[in-house]
């Protein structure tokens, strides 16, 4: 009895110490996790600030005309971003045109048509496409796709459309193999898995009651997809497409291989061109002079602003569909 009474203060003392120690450790851990979370914000802020600081020289030298000038001349130090911006937008737009119908088609196939045992393997195969590094697409595009297009497809298309007004400008010129269209095709393959997997995910959010009621009044699978599934998931699909667009705009290596790196604006999709990211990748380490480097960083800043806006819109749309399903 007395032994217990003697021990009590000691136990109480050690208990207090333990509680204090626990509280302290908890505070430290809480602060550490919070700091890490804030670091993520700091990173993005740091990216924006450093790009802005790095491009200040070019922006103050050329002003607004940087965005509207086509010439890119390291010798006379006259730099304009119009040609890379044009190339970036055209390749991404054509890639979206190719990849969206394909991606949605695959998603419909996977959710509505595919036999159940095949669903997981095929879905996984498409997602594996997303994991392949972009440099692999680049090397494949350069050594396999470009020669094939040059010798087989492009001469035929040029011959086919040479008398058609409008189209003859779009598909003009010697078939180089590399150029805007080849880059767009490579980009299309690369963004296909993103579109497919996001579309598949939002298709899965459609309540089965809706689909079953449509089937109940005698709709075919296509009618259910066209009239129920797609309208219900429109925002989600748009979000997925925007996300894919963000990827396409910033994709570097695959495009660098097959774009041709030519600083000019051409109406022909077969012409070599350049994109913002390809220009930076090709020229950054060779850039001599501060103004040249600064102009390349300014290109990076433009790309950053464009992709930031596109990705922010995409995330906003996807968040809205998440909110609706309560996920």
């Amino acid at each position: 009895m007395s032994a217990v009474q003697e021990a009590l203060p000691a136990i109480k003392g050690s208990r207090d110490a333990t509680v204090r120690r626990f509280a302290l450790t908890d505070t430290i851990f809480h602060a550490a996790t919070r700091a890490a979370a804030i670091l993520v914000l700091v990173l993005l802020g740091g990216v924006a600030i450093s790009l802005f600081a790095g491009s200040w020289q070019a922006l103050s030298t050329f002003g607004f005309s940087f965005l509207t000038t086509e010439s890119w001349n390291p010798v006379t130090e006259k730099f304009g971003a119009l040609a890379p911006i044009y190339g970036t937008i055209i390749t991404s737009a054509v890639a979206i045109l190719i990849a969206v119908p394909l991606g949605i088609g695959i998603a419909i196939f996977l959710t509505e048509l595919c036999p159940r045992p095949l669903r997981r393997p095929i879905g996984m195969a498409v997602e594996l496409l997303a994991g392949i590094p972009s440099i692999i697409y680049g090397i494949w595009g350069l050594f396999v796709l470009a020669p094939f297009l040059q010798t087989t497809v492009q001469p035929y298309i040029i011959w086919l459309f040479h008398g058609v007004p409008g189209l003859n400008n779009l598909f003009a010129g010697p078939p180089y193999g590399i150029g805007l269209l080849t880059s767009a095709m490579i980009l299309a393959i690369m963004i296909l898995p993103f579109i497919t997997s996001i579309t598949k995910d939002v298709f899965d959010t459609v309540p089965s009651v809706l689909k079953e009621s449509a089937y109940g009044i005698g709709c075919t699978t296509w009618e259910v997809t066209r009239r129920v599934v797609i309208p219900y998931t429109r925002i989600g699909i748009m979000g997925g497409v925007m996300l894919a667009l963000g990827r396409a705009l910033g994709e570097t290596m695959a495009v660098t291989f097959v774009i041709g790196n030519a600083h000019r604006i051409s109406t022909s999709l077969f012409a070599p061109a350049t994109t913002i990211s390809a220009t930076i990748a090709n020229e950054f380490t060779e850039a001599v002079g501060d103004l040249y480097t600064s102009s390349l960083v300014a290109l990076g800043l433009i790309l950053f602003v464009i992709t930031f806006l596109i990705l922010a819109i995409a995330r906003y749309m996807l968040m809205r569909i998440d909110a609706r399903t309560g996920a």
Partner: peptide
């Protein structure tokens, strides 16, 4: 989420 899909070449420039 934006960092997740930001162009990696931008990170290189940073």
């Amino acid at each position: 989420d934006i960092l997740l899909s930001a162009p990696s070449i931008i990170i290189g420039l940073f």
